[in-house]
Design a binder for these strands. Structure first.
Length: 591
RNA sequence: GGAGCCGUGGUGUAGCCAGGUUAACACGCCGGCCUGUCAAGCCGGAGAUCGCGGGUUCAAAUCCCGUCGGUUCCGCCA
């Protein structure tokens, strides 16, 4: 059979959908050639589309034309195939494929479009250099893991939309070209042609706009919002990323938190078949710092930090006693799930602690009634007993201790992570969610010698802490909450200030004069005079959510066209120079 | 801004520390054989001036310096 140039038969089914029940039916498939196996007589073609893969059999005894066409087919060619679905002979069933019980006996095959040999193999496991994959991202996305991640991402956002919309949220778009606001990350800036010398900024988040929408009386807003921050990149940070952003009127923290518990348990049940117990556990910021040394603790592991200061108050071990006498504390944790590691590994722990910025780390291993430790000789029997008692250390178990001020918290937090990874410790669960609440309203910025908002300047102080605003600002907690999953901050939010007087007091602590505040976000302040409802919300990093759900280590693996660490896109070549004429039009000149 | 790691046919690696033959292996690619494979098999073939620049040396993929790209982390990211 001769085919007309440009002719192709349109598909009747998707490759990956064919099953045993379809046996006997005539189908037309369109797809990419994953692989061709030519046995001289019969030719097998693995045909791929977005739904998956199915085997096409081109037997010259069935159709000489189809077989002849198949001989000219190469990898990544796009073809059509008309044929009949057949259950495979029992010994030829491929249990590795969802479609492995069937195959399509080709009666007609034609090439729709050709392809050069791709620069890398389109297959599951890809050790291929990421820069090359990014340059040919459209080929990279043909690989199943990337394709699946993008499918998952689409389903997650779809479900988020369904869920929020069913709860009365309205999806509203906010500007991409907007005004640079102070504090926070460095802005991406866009020059204005109509107003030379002036600039838009791309939004770091729709924060201010969503508050305006609450003042506007829309009651509940959400958006799958692109955000831009001109800061250095990381595995979990891109210059542009996507937030699930939402805001609600007439709510307290509890309302936001419980709604999000519901949304996330739904997502995980639907897409990962994981049942998450709700409500998710909660820790206040203070508890989190005390027990895990971090405001984003990984609760898949125990290794809770305890205070052992009392045990060393009068110790012969000078390093610890001095630390205690100088107002410091001795804190540490037991490495759950590790027994009698070799000396070499214990020494590695000390090195790691130093890398984390600690001046030292002491390990102790329970051996019989005593403790093996580099500092054992400085410890009295009473101290050893007190430690063994307080730590609950069992035979062979390891206790790590560090002494000093608040700076040892992050060190111990780092050591928890390191131990979990280094010793491959068992997880209590695959996904450990936790809310961290009541963050401090302010941090002290040592460089600029002033208070800064921990979250942002519109975050409401806890009602019972408002009186401390002026006297002891660092002790003021806020009505804020972060959702943390496996040690990754997924999102955070707060109840906002709706009382004008409170807002002014906060600005005053931040050292913002009325004029400065007016200049920086006067439009919001003005809006907040016109009957703002009490409101609050939260914003999530969608990329991070999907990354964790897909079991990936980088958000680049769940973004169709991500950027490299230097912010470039190897596919398009962005960023790039522009024509001099463009600069002239914008009244811009390079320095 | 700082620290670490990586860069060798189309792809992934070995070789580099201890400089010295035609730079090795696997996958892919091309050709041949082959009617049940699915990482097909067997036979044959093509394909790399070792990221780039400079230096040391009789001699550099290998040592030194610089630079570019990628990546991880610290700083930064309200």
């Amino acid at each position: 059979m001769t085919t007309l140039k440009g002719y192709w038969a349109k598909r009747s089914r998707m490759c990956g959908d064919l099953r045993r029940e379809d046996a006997g039916s005539e189908v037309v498939l369109n797809g990419w050639v994953q692989r061709r196996r030519d046995h001289g007589g019969v030719i097998f073609i693995d045909l791929r589309d977005v739904s998956g893969l199915v085997q096409v059999v081109c037997n010259p005894e069935v159709s000489a034309a189809a077989h002849a066409a198949a001989e000219g087919v190469r990898g990544e060619y796009v073809i059509y195939c008309r044929g009949t679905v057949r259950t495979r002979p029992e010994e030829a069933v491929n249990p590795k494929l969802p479609t492995g019980e069937v195959e399509v006996i080709a009666e007609e095959v034609g090439i729709i479009s050709q392809s050069p040999t791709p620069p890398f193999e389109i297959q599951e496991e890809s050790g291929v250099d990421e820069a090359l994959r990014l340059r040919y991202r459209y080929l990279d996305i043909r690989r199943p893991d990337l394709r699946q991640a993008l499918i998952l991402r689409s389903r997650v956002t779809g479900e988020v939309r369904d869920f929020l919309s069913s709860r009365g949220f309205l999806e509203i778009e906010t500007p991409i070209l907007t005004k640079s606001t102070p504090e926070g990350a460095r802005d991406f800036v866009v020059p204005s042609r109509l107003q030379p010398g002036k600039f838009y900024a791309l939004p770091q988040s729709p924060q201010l706009f969503k508050q305006l929408l609450m003042v506007a009386g829309l009651d509940r807003y959400y958006q799958i919002a692109r955000c831009f921050r001109d800061e250095d990149l990381r595995a979990d940070r891109q210059p542009e990323f996507t937030q699930i952003d939402l805001e609600m009127s007439f709510v307290e923290p509890e309302d936001v938190i419980s709604l999000m518990d519901e949304m996330f348990s739904r997502l995980f049940l639907l897409f990962l078949e994981v049942e998450l117990p709700t409500p998710f556990p909660r820790l206040t910021w203070r508890e989190a710092m005390e027990r895990y040394g971090s405001d984003r603790p990984d609760l898949r592991y125990g290794m809770e930090i305890h205070d052992y200061t009392d045990a060393f108050a009068r110790s012969e071990f000078k390093v610890f006693r001095n630390a205690v006498e100088n107002g410091g504390r001795v804190r540490g944790f037991k490495i759950d799930g590790l027994v009698s590691p070799p000396r070499r590994e214990l020494d590695e722990l000390v090195e790691e602690a130093k890398r984390l910025g600690s001046s030292g780390l002491v390990w102790m291993v329970r051996e019989g009634e005593g403790l093996r430790s580099p500092v054992a000789k400085f410890l009295s029997r009473e101290e050893v007993e007190a430690l063994a008692e307080a730590s609950g250390l069992r035979e062979g178990e390891v206790l790590l201790l560090a002494a000093g001020g608040p700076e040892i918290g992050p060190v111990l937090a780092g050591m928890r992570e390191y131990c979990a990874r280094r010793f491959n410790l068992p997880c209590s669960s695959r996904f450990a969610f936790v809310w961290v609440t009541e963050f401090p309203l302010f941090d002290w910025d040592e460089e600029e010698k002033r208070y800064k908002s921990n979250h942002h300047p519109f975050t409401a102080p806890s009602p019972d802490a408002i009186d401390l605003l002026e006297e002891r600002p660092l002790e003021v907690t806020s009505q804020s909450y972060d959702m943390v999953l496996n040690g990754v901050e997924l999102g955070g939010g707060s109840i906002r200030i709706h009382d004008h007087a409170v807002q002014e007091r906060v600005f005053s602590v931040l050292g913002l004069s009325r004029e400065e505040a007016e200049d920086k976000f006067g439009f919001l302040l003005e809006a907040l005079r016109y009957g703002p409802p009490p409101h609050g919300g939260i914003a999530y990093g969608l990329d991070r959510i999907v990354m964790l759900m897909a079991g990936r280590d980088s958000i680049r693996d769940v973004i169709a066209f991500p950027k490299t660490q230097s912010g470039s896109d190897p596919l398009t070549g962005a960023p790039d120079a522009v024509y001099p004429g463009q600069l002239r039009e914008l009244r811009l000149r390079p320095l």
